[in-house]
Design a protein around this nucleic acid. Structure first.
Length: 216
DNA sequence: ATCCCGAGGG
DNA sequence: CCCTCTGGAT
């Protein structure tokens, strides 16, 4: 099977089985999505969603969040990974939104990565989810799943994974393909003991063929 | 002990 | 490239 055929098989499968895949983070506008994605670093979406409603109620926009003090905001974030960093990042991010972007979330990767707490992955999430830009955010799930299936070849960094995926996935499908890989990684192709018996694409999966199929 | 939609700094 | 940040779930 060629690499092109592998991509085609995977795309066809998810187009049929997950045509409406989308983020599981709770949000109502770009500002809320940005806050949620910053909080999601090394933390499950489920746990982020437990904290964001209270944050959005007290800090409904960049203006109110920019005026928060560390001690006011910290308790909301305390039970998430890296609460110190994330509290600082959120306030700093909101201040820069106010000072440089009229309180609105910019929708280019170049502008987004200037914000405290926003790196390439977060910028790709915002621009692809809010604006359907053909940017591929590579998180731990996308990285792992792509490597296992064989969508990526010898990709050792998230950036390498991003470039290979963008090269092989049609532009108009990149933003949804991100969610296909995320959700597949979260519920089926999990890090430890992947649930290959539940997986619909083992026929083209390098990991399955190497580690599972041979033992049967 | 390992993992979760990483970012910043050295 | 490396390291640190750092809590909860499994």
């Amino acid at each position: 099977m060629t690499r092109k055929q592998r991509f085609q098989y995977v795309i066809d499968y998810f187009l049929h089985h997950a045509p409406d895949a989308e983020t599981e983070l709770l949000y109502d506008n770009p500002y809320q999505l940005l806050v949620a994605v910053i909080l999601s670093a090394q933390c499950t979406d489920k746990r982020v969603n437990m904290t964001t409603p209270a944050i959005f109620e007290k800090y409904p926009d960049a203006d109110s969040l920019s005026k928060a003090t560390f001690d006011e905001l910290f308790p909301f974030i305390r039970s998430i990974s890296y609460p110190n960093n994330k509290t600082k990042h959120l306030i700093g991010m909101a201040k820069m939104l106010q000072e440089q972007f009229n309180g609105e979330v910019p929708l280019t990767v170049e502008e987004l990565v200037q914000l405290p707490g926003v790196g390439r992955k977060t910028a790709n999430v915002i621009t692809s989810v809010v604006d359907q830009q053909p940017n591929m955010a590579v998180d731990t799930h996308v990285f792992r799943v792509s490597a296992r299936i064989g969508l990526t070849l010898n990709a050792k960094t998230p950036l390498a994974t991003e470039k290979q995926l963008i090269q092989h996935i049609p532009k108009e499908l990149i933003h949804i393909a991100h969610h296909w890989l995320i959700l597949h990684g979260r519920y089926v192709c999990v890090a430890r003991n992947p649930k290959c018996e539940k997986c619909g694409i083992t026929a083209v999966c390098k990991y399955y063929q190497k580690n599972v199929a041979v033992k049967k």
